[in-house]
Design a protein around this nucleic acid. Structure first.
Lengths: 260, 260
DNA sequence: AAATTAATTCTCAAAAAATGAGAATATTGA
DNA sequence: TCAATATTCTCATTTTTTGAGAATTAATTT
């Protein structure tokens, strides 16, 4: 293990259930000598990616908060999504959570979320949490609009198809045709998801905007209304992105030299 | 430049005003050959720390969103602060923004923020934004409770004191004695800040909890009430942290081997 | 205060990886 | 299709990283 992988491997140790690590424990878990891990950790601490808590225990560092803010402020999808989701949950006039999600490696990740006032539940999809590719309206809408090659890589080519695989393919084709996807209890029991695609081919953006609401309270007319809201919010976001991205974001070299 | 510095240098290029970079531009800015930067960027993209937008332009990657979520969920200070700030802005009964901030390298960074309903302004202090050490109630409260050695390193030893330096020292001593700090228009014109320390020595935690409100609307009685609120919220957070951290977070080695 | 234990840094030679310049290749837009 | 860029590749050289254990430091106990 070398180069960046070394740092990645350490950072990947941290998750919801293991949020604090000692160096010996990392050394153990990674099968790498302690002296090596100490050096790696020292670098990560210097960069703010890890922080020494008390008693030789390390946690994720504040640099992630800093970079997350930058991303929130500067990422076109996130920026466009924030306003749209805010409006969407207000117009929904019912407890719900709105999400904007995109592909992230082999999973789908929500990059903006917003809950309506007085929404008691929280869906499993939430900002920053990687979710499975093939379940839930949010993910399926993204899958449905992926270029064929990429889709094949992610869920396997059309030939190696068992029955479930063929069914998924059919469902995706259907979603593409309809322009939205609605599911219930696929991710969270009792919650329904309604998702529509946010596609800006020129910019390589394939995302999905979705609304999660309590399924039992969702009458058919209400459901149709929300589908319309979601679909139009999604095309609004797409439009905003097209507009924001046409004068392609200028990259100005700053001729800043790096020290050392 | 080698090791981790290489990756850091690339990531540090990204900020609010330069959020999208081409490799040639990075190569230029860093004074490093393009072929080298391509390799570095490839690693960062593989790790999710950078993402290729359209047309050979790179942006910060979603890994930051993922790690930020983990941090939000697992960092004791952040976790304790979220609830406290939520309650605080509700009890304030006036438009305001509450912040929980800590030292971050040579600056102060807010790690949780929460605005009361119908708060029109947004203070410069916001989650993830590094702020100067010596201005604003938020920062001063932190400075005031730093161990002498650390303080000397950050603002210079007691001997090399000009008038301003001596005044700051006096102010810090005063803050330590009073147990809070209130300022007005030090960071944002027209906004007042009230901050109290969140100290948990056993855990090495030195943070500050603050409330920002419109200065012109702030009568003396109201101000006193808010000071009380802030001070008690701060000690509540400290107490919660002591409780959460006494059974020191167990680090369970997972004996997970790294691939490759 | 000394002793014990654990954490962390240091040392150094061997092994591995990064570097840079340019060639080779892919991708993109006209 | 052609040009213009972007990106990857190649390879000899230089520079790190690595790992094992010793040395040091820090924390805790006796």
């Amino acid at each position: 293990m070398a180069g960046f992988a070394r740092f990645q491997a350490v950072l990947r140790l941290f998750d919801e259930t293991a949020s604090a690590w000692t160096v010996p424990a990392m050394s153990d878990a990674l099968g790498v000598p302690a002296s090596t891990v100490y050096r790696t950790v020292r670098d990560l601490v210097a960069g703010g990616f890890l922080e020494a808590a008390h008693e030789s225990v390390y946690r994720l560092g504040s640099a992630f908060i800093e970079y997350d803010r930058l991303l929130r402020l500067t990422d076109p999808l996130v920026a466009a999504g924030r306003g749209a989701l805010h409006d969407l949950v207000a117009q929904a006039h019912t407890p719900c959570v709105a999400l904007l999600s995109r592909l992230y490696n082999d999973q789908v990740m929500c990059v903006v979320d917003e809950a309506a006032r007085d929404t008691a539940f929280r869906p499993s999809y939430e900002r920053g949490r990687p979710m499975p590719l093939t379940q839930g309206a949010t993910s399926k809408v993204i899958l449905a609009h992926l270029p064929a090659r990429q889709l094949n890589r992610l869920i396997g080519g059309p030939k190696d198809g068992d029955a479930r695989h063929a069914a998924l393919r059919r469902e995706l084709a259907d979603i593409r045709k309809r322009g939205f996807c609605a599911t219930a209890s696929e991710i969270d029991a009792g919650l329904a998801g309604i998702a529509a695609p946010v596609i800006v081919r020129e910019a390589g953006i394939i995302a999905s905007l979705s609304l999660v609401a309590d399924d039992s309270r969702l009458e058919e007319s209400q459901r149709r209304r929300l589908v319309l809201l979601v679909v139009s919010a999604a095309s609004l976001v797409a439009e905003e992105l097209r507009y924001a991205l046409t004068p392609p974001t200028i990259v100005e070299p700053r001729h800043k030299m790096v020290k050392q």
